[in-house]
Design a protein around this nucleic acid. Structure first.
Length: 457
RNA sequence: GUGCCUGUAGCUCAACGGCAGAGCGCCUGACUGUGGCUCAGGAGGUUGUGGGUUCGAGACCCAUCAGGCACCCCA
């Protein structure tokens, strides 16, 4: 029997310093989502296996499956999109469309863990259910841009494409459906393996040289969004579906501009394939160049998925923020709250006789909304109590000794500077509140590096 | 799921097949209303785990677990 002390592979424990950052991420995302009218939804982590089967494509083998005590075949959710589809179908009569909903929670994928890849991963999903309007797609772009900006990111890029642009590229290159699905994976690797790498992959998967060059030219288009879309429209002439897709993306981008999404945040990237098979329309993902972390979020339009449950088409667009990746990147870049502890001040206990007075002070401050920790041992030397506060990173220590009590004052000591002053007891709240606000102000990114087109090699 | 690299004190890492160490951290004191800095002491290890080779294994071999990198794929 093993009694090892060990967490499960690919699943992380988050100690308080990490959780403070994660909660900051979640709080920030939540507040941006709600600013756009998205409503919270929570669903179970466990679903019937058949609910998940046949929805996500080849990755189905990565789903965690087991039988419950009653022998039912169940599975841990792979994402929060399929459960959303189930909910929409199940509660159609109680929901009003279009419906904006967000969901923040964990999903499970039996992948091999690596950088930015975990078997338990938290995602923050937003979706607009029941609207086919390109304005819905654009709103997702606006939310994502606001959210990453609010988190402190200064140089992210959102790649945008459309399933039928990709399809059009395959069709005008003379590939049938089977061949087409093979090339998507190859061209999606453009950023990683470069133009020559993709050419190699294409040729190796049986694409003839002429078709390969055609594909490479299309996925390697450079320029701003309008230029790339125009070039695509020109070269995909005759493919009605692709042209419609291009018009659709134009509309989405126009609306996004109207909502103030900066031009430099958007790149039309025909190479963008995205793995999940349920996407039907626009697809997008946001990336930063430094540190390298794949995509921070990904999403798109999936007009048929909910219909698989509901029996009628309910067009939907949405995306998932990868909280694990946001966390890892923000940690590496030193973003998020500077504080690594919760309390803004430690109320010390001067001695057993004075403890009551100190505890009374602590409760006053807590009722005023301040985050206060107290010492627990009135007989412990004051130096020990200060040392504890200092090590915990608590910025302030409060002391009430006999002198302070007699004068109705409190010593407020700044443990970072070492300075201290006696403050009238009635003024402690306002003084601490001011410093607490400054102390919890999050840091923004130093830089995530300039990012736009891939490095040309 | 495949290949490669790594795993030694709380942390970061040393140690030719021959007595397991350093820095930081931690504990005690110098410091009797005050942390940090300095100084003096001190504690802390079945070398991830289980086998094997050897007179002798932290080191070599096998297995296993965990982490990293590259595939694959994705948030």
């Amino acid at each position: 029997m093993s009694n090892r002390v060990q967490n499960i592979r690919g699943m992380r424990d988050h100690l308080p310093p990490a959780m403070i950052l994660r909660q900051y991420i979640i709080d920030t995302l939540t507040s941006v989502f709600e600013r756009y009218g998205f409503e919270p939804l929570q669903t179970p982590i466990v679903e019937y296996a058949e609910t998940l089967d046949g929805k996500i494509g080849d990755d189905e083998k990565l789903i965690y499956r087991f039988e419950d005590h009653g022998g039912r075949k169940v599975a841990l959710r792979y994402d929060q999109t399929v459960p959303l589809a189930r909910v929409v179908a199940q509660y159609q009569g109680r929901l009003l469309f279009p419906w904006r909903r967000y969901a923040i929670g964990q999903s499970y994928r039996g992948e091999r863990p690596g950088r930015g890849r975990y078997r338990e991963l938290w995602q923050a999903d937003i979706d607009i259910v029941g609207s086919a309007s390109p304005l819905a797609d654009a709103e997702i772009l606006a939310v994502l841009t606001d959210a990453l900006t609010a988190l402190g990111f200064t140089s992210f890029t959102t790649l945008i494409s459309h399933r039928q642009i990709l399809g059009g590229i395959a069709r005008v290159s003379g590939l049938d459906n089977a061949a087409a699905s093979n090339i998507y994976r190859a061209i999606d690797k453009l950023d990683k393996i470069g133009i020559d790498g993709v050419r190699n992959d294409l040729l190796q998967s049986g694409v003839n040289a002429a078709a390969a060059e055609r594909i490479l030219a299309l996925i390697n288009l450079q320029g701003d969004a309008d230029e790339v879309l125009n070039a695509l429209a020109q070269q995909l002439q005759g493919d009605e579906r692709a042209l419609q897709a291009i018009d659709n993306v134009r509309s989405i981008i126009d609306y996004a501009r109207a909502m103030g999404v900066p031009e430099e945040r958007i790149v039309i990237a025909p190479r963008l394939a995205r793995g999940l098979s349920y996407y039907t329309g626009a697809v997008f993902e946001s990336i930063i160049q430094n540190p390298p972390m794949g995509s921070l979020l990904g999403g798109g339009r999936y007009d048929d998925l909910i219909g698989m449950f509901a029996g009628r088409s309910i067009p939907t667009v949405g995306l998932a923020f990868g909280i694990e990746r946001l966390h890892d990147v923000m940690e590496e870049l030193g973003m998020g709250p500077a504080s690594r502890t919760i309390a803004v001040a430690l109320v010390t206990l001067f001695n057993p006789n004075m403890a009551t007075e100190s505890l009374r002070l602590a409760q006053e401050l807590r009722r005023a909304g301040l985050l206060i920790e107290t010492a627990l041992d009135p007989s412990e030397k004051l130096g020990k109590q200060l040392q504890y506060a200092n090590r915990r990173g608590i910025p302030y220590a409060l002391v009430i000794g006999p002198d302070e009590l007699a004068r109705g004052e409190v010593v407020v000591k700044d443990l970072r500077s070492g300075e201290q002053q006696s403050v009238a007891r009635s003024a402690v709240v306002s003084q601490l509140r001011a410093v607490a606000d400054a102390w919890r102000t999050p840091r923004t990114a130093h830089d995530q590096g300039g990012m736009h087109e891939r490095q040309t090699s």
